[in-house]
């Protein structure tokens, strides 16, 4: 089956000027690859500041002006050029952004959902979609500051669902919510996937991601290090040492912290960025590491888990 979205070797970098004249290129995302098919929830897991929001904005073609993007984006089999992204966003491709600050503070919810349309049809649609997420009619008249955290999340999801998207990108949709509320919100995404959308769920929370995702792409220092099935995690079929370490760090699995820190943008040396923290590192980890197929998923590691310890 043709994937809805294919990201191949995507890189996003910023041009910064230091001291007025010294130009510096700061790579935030370096070699990111993933695929999303229709009806599937794919989680992208990466730590805070690793470039997750930039990935979302890059796909939508709304990166800031001082950034450059390279690599391939394929949407429904065709290259997703900036022009095509501009046509598709708000129609086939929808974003659920990271927080309430993404709503206009001076505009009521209703007009925000309707995006300037005033006809009766638009009214009926916005009312129906709010109702679908358990928000009453009065929500239309509310300003963003009058919404609770959970209501604001649901408004943001409603705004995406209103478009009946083929690809939905949800950027960190649950922080600040308790486990039950977060579970309900994630349930909405699973529901949208069942209706046929491909859902890209961006989060730093592996545990939460595993509750609804079919597949998980793990992101380290701007690179995809592994693409695994959700079922691989409990089954012990993980491929990359970092993924394994993330899994082991979860409360239910030993709570073992990973020592050291992730290199920030521009701090990575050559070779595998995880090598300094890796129990399985070897001399050849200092070279170039390709992303290879392994056990139905993909891994960027020369000495993956399950293989011989070097």
């Amino acid at each position: 089956m043709q994937p809805v979205l294919e990201v191949r070797d995507l890189s996003i970098s910023f041009t910064q000027y230091q001291g007025g004249t010294r130009r510096r290129v700061l790579p935030v995302i370096r070699r990111l690859s993933l695929t999303v098919t229709a009806g599937e929830v794919v989680a992208v897991v990466g730590s805070s500041g690793s470039g997750k929001s930039l990935l979302a904005h890059g796909i939508l073609g709304i990166l800031p002006y001082n950034s450059q993007m390279e690599g391939e984006l394929i949407y429904q089999g065709q290259p997703l050029t900036p022009q095509r992204a501009a046509r598709l966003r708000g129609r086939e491709i929808a974003l659920v952004p990271q927080g309430v600050t993404y709503l206009d503070p001076l505009m009521q919810v209703g007009p925000q959902l309707r995006r300037g349309r005033r006809d009766a049809g638009a009214r009926a649609e916005s009312r129906a979609v709010l109702e679908r997420y358990g928000l009453g009619r009065e929500t239309e008249e509310r300003y963003p500051f009058e919404l609770s955290g959970g209501m604001a999340r649901r408004v943001l999801i409603a705004s995406a669902a209103l478009q009946a998207p083929k690809l939905l990108i949800a950027d960190e949709p649950t922080p600040g919510l308790d486990a039950r509320a977060a579970g309900r919100i994630l349930g909405h995404f699973r529901e949208l996937a069942q209706e046929g959308a491909g859902v890209l769920l961006i989060t730093h929370d592996l545990e939460l991601a595993l509750t609804i995702a079919h597949r998980v792409a793990v992101f380290y220092a701007g690179e995809t290090v592994e693409e695994a099935f959700a079922a691989d995690f409990p089954a012990g079929r993980l491929r990359h040492p970092y993924t394994q370490a993330l899994w082991n760090a979860l409360p239910g699995n030993g709570f073992t912290p990973i020592s050291g820190t992730q290199p920030g943008p521009g701090e990575e040396g050559p070779g595998c960025p995880f090598a300094p923290r890796c129990p399985r590192r070897a001399a050849d980890c200092a070279g170039d590491i390709p992303l290879i197929e392994a056990a139905g998923g993909r891994v960027r590691c020369l000495h993956p888990e399950g293989g011989k310890t070097p």
Partner: peptide, 25 residues
């Protein structure tokens, strides 16, 4: 602002962003 970014993500045109969100704010 974030909300203009989101408006763009929802396919609003530059004109609409300026008139609907810019002037209001």
């Amino acid at each position: 602002s974030d909300y203009v970014l989101f408006a763009r993500a929802r396919g609003e045109s530059n004109r609409s962003i300026l008139l609907r969100h810019g002037l209001r704010n």
